[in-house]
Amino acid sequence: MERETLRSHCDAYVLGLLDGEELRELEALINKGDPETKTALRESIDLVAQIALTSNPADPPALLRPKIMNALPKPAEAPPQRKRNVLSFAGWAVAAGLALVAFLGYQSANMYSSRLARAEGELREARQEAAGLRAESRLMKRVMAIVMARDTRLIRLASAEPERPQFRAFWSQPTGLVLTGVNVTAPQSGRTMQLWVVPKAGNPVSAGVFQPAADGQVVHIPESLTAAIEGSAALAISDEPEGGSPQPTTKPVWVGAIGD
């Protein structure tokens, strides 16, 4: 292509006027990385852009500047660690496990001692309490097994209502799922909380109902987890009638993406 023709085509291309065979011919040269075309195109861009300066500059609204700056996305967060990186996860898992043990142990000890004091002399009640603690102990062992498993993932369930606390779910493929929460407000009388596994396609599957303890603590391990969490989209918690529902009847209050 002759130099003048190339320049002329580049001018028309930058103005958006080139079409047909001429357009195809120029695009072929651009795609080929032809140096002469590259130079001609750059010169055309610089020339055409100057036509803009025949228009008068104008002051944009004063509020536009902060509007633009405030709309910028926040600086990117550090890339998330690979969820299945067992080595990097181990330290976290141990810390989380110990924290959970300490937390549950503290709660249990408090509960045990205060109730024993109140139930002094009432052997039957004490035995019942002991049975409860044994159950808690078993629960704690199950929780620990899940939290300390090598493949455990952490799923955070957040609410759109900022005043509500966050739930955490620890999930290990072979060991199971445990949902934990603190400072959770109990649902109204006749209502319960229900955990759902939300698949990528199809209906949510129930992962059991639960109630927070009087102190707002939740430790819920679904007894029969029929839904395959691996490959599902999210966990969700909704407010349901007592006894639970086959399908959610209200909009989920907490949702946490499971991720890949």
């Binding site: 228009s55 104008a58 944009p60």
Partner: peptide
């Protein structure tokens, strides 16, 4: 911004 806004206007 005065140039950009002027072009758009």
């Amino acid at each position: 911004s005065r140039v950009v806004y002027g072009i758009a206007l």
